[in-house]
């Protein structure tokens, strides 16, 4: 079971500079429609080990659908998805065992305590990581008897990151992590994401907040109407524009106020 790192993708040479090695996620020509609505229209991207990779775009651009296909929650209409060499549509349970996921609009029962949540999700991972140690690390020890409904927005996000780390994953997907948080809590959450990177965890950060992407991401893609309209390091995507935000508004065809 362990150490099967001989996937065919593993030895492919990294394109461009900074070749960190194997692709953690490789998506080629992904397509997904809901009825007549095309959500993802031919997206290809590659996430390398150890980086913070941003997936940017306005609401409804296809970001979440892309991520959902990557973790096997949805079956693509076309294209290929490989996560750690596995096909999430064919083997979702195995992918979810090795990928930590925080998806948008996911919550826990109001009366479930922090400790209970950790116990429930830890049981699914056959006890890879000690939940108590994670609670210490993410500053939740004194809140372990607090009900989910009584946690602040920032505490909830720390709990969700801790839950995502229970399986000691190589890659963590964070979807709209800071949406709805106040500025202080957002900055705290950013430092948590940097902490993940320092631990060597690959992070896929899905967001529509440009400042966040600029602060955190090594590389990013901008998605609009199901297609990639720009990709590269934040500096490269910003190009001649004043900020990533104005570049983004120009790319996605939105008027700059």
């Amino acid at each position: 079971m362990v150490g099967m790192d001989s996937g065919t993708n593993g030895t492919a040479p990294a394109s461009g500079g900074g070749s960190r090695g194997a692709a953690i996620i490789e998506i080629t020509d992904l397509r997904k429609a809901y009825g007549a609505t095309v959500a993802v229209d031919g997206i290809s991207l590659r996430v390398d080990r150890g980086e913070v990779f941003g997936v940017l775009g306005p609401n409804g651009a296809g970001k979440t659908t892309t991520v959902e296909c990557a973790v096997g929650l949805r079956r693509p209409d076309g294209g290929t998805v490989r996560v750690l060499g596995m096909d999430p549509a064919a083997d979702p349970e195995r992918v979810r065992r090795r990928v930590g996921i925080q998806l948008q609009q996911a919550v826990l029962p109001q009366r479930m305590t922090v400790r209970e949540a950790m116990a429930v999700f830890a049981s699914a991972y056959r006890g890879v990581v000690d939940p108590a140690a994670l609670l210490d690390e993410w500053g939740l020890r004194e809140h372990r008897r607090t009900a989910f409904g009584k946690l602040s927005g920032g505490q909830r996000q720390r709990l969700f990151i801790a839950l995502a780390l229970l399986g000691d994953p190589e890659v963590v997907v964070l979807d709209e992590l800071t949406t709805g948080l106040d500025p202080a809590a957002r900055r705290d959450t950013w430092s948590l994401v940097r902490g993940l990177r320092t631990r060597g965890v690959t992070v896929v950060l899905v967001t529509h907040a440009m400042d966040e992407a600029e602060m955190l991401c090594d590389r990013l893609v901008v998605i609009d109407r199901g297609r990639i309209v720009a990709e590269g390091a934040p500096d490269a995507v910003r190009g001649e524009h004043r900020s990533l935000e104005t570049a983004y508004l120009a790319l996605t065809g939105t008027e700059v106020a």
Binding site: L73, E93, I101, L103, Q105, V107, L108, P109, Y125
Partner: peptide, 15 residues
């Protein structure tokens, strides 16, 4: 649980 997204959160774990 379904309305509020609890089932969604459980579904993306290995449970």
């Amino acid at each position: 649980y379904r309305d509020r997204g609890v089932l969604r959160r459980m579904r993306i774990s290995p449970l």
